[in-house]
Amino acid sequence: MLDTALLPLSLKESRNKIFSMANLLKNFGTTRIVLLHVLGGNNKRKKERVRKQIEEIANKYREIGFQVEMFFKEGSVANTVVNFATEMEVNYIALCWQKKWLIKRTLLGNIDADMIRMTDLPVFIYKKDYYLFKNWDLNKVLYATDFQGTDTKVMPYLKNKDFQADTLYFLHVGSRAPDPDTEKKRREKVDKQLQSLAEECTQAYNRVEKLNVSGNVKNQIVRKAKSRGVDLIVVGKQDKAKGWDQLLGSTAESLPHKANCSIFIVPGMKTRRSVLV
């Protein structure tokens, strides 16, 4: 399912981070990596230097055990990456997340965030720093579900035998009901839904746990992931953002800014744009 990954590189990423990510990608069952660099400008010497650097990375990836292809494109970075990923029929896009401060990303934008917003492919965002990350295995994974259409898209990935982790948490962050009685019923209903999801995955993990909380969705996902020492958050992405989310970005889009672990975003449905493409 996650056999081929497109890895866009700006070459501003630290080498150690790029290589440590490669070890993690193995947990997804990935065997083929497509490296892509989107060029800016026509400086021949610079192009040559970039080619050499990408080749170095490709060789290192080959040493780890991946099949690697390299491509160079020109144009708007986010658009080019998204279109190329569709064209190459990769299974997902893997990004080495580079943190940008709020002011910087407000003024200059954030290409990674644009890619997450625009693509209809799953996106893996690698956030761990090399020096903090000694263990290449995925230990704890948290799936934040809203029981909407994204479950049908995400569950196949979680049940996939290539997707290897020790513990899986199912988290639902709900809106609290207006009174204690209704809230009790709501929580019972959520527990049942979480239980049915958990039962689907009991075979694939050593431990499956359910977390049923209420409050702010983004904050609670980040908080629970941090308190449980989660390595990877899995979320579904819905294209139909409502209310403030239209302005501030959906949960999936804003999680990479807030969470301090890696994130795997699975799109829920095809957008009109991707159908046209």
Binding site: R176, A177, P178, D179, P180, T182, E183
Partner: peptide
């Protein structure tokens, strides 16, 4: 009125904050 008569909570000002504060 909403939280007391429709949601069955005691008619107190604090009752109005259940959706935000919970228990």
């Amino acid at each position: 009125a909403y939280f007391s008569f429709r949601r069955g909570m005691p008619p107190l000002i604090s009752s109005c904050f259940y959706p935000l504060l919970g228990d």
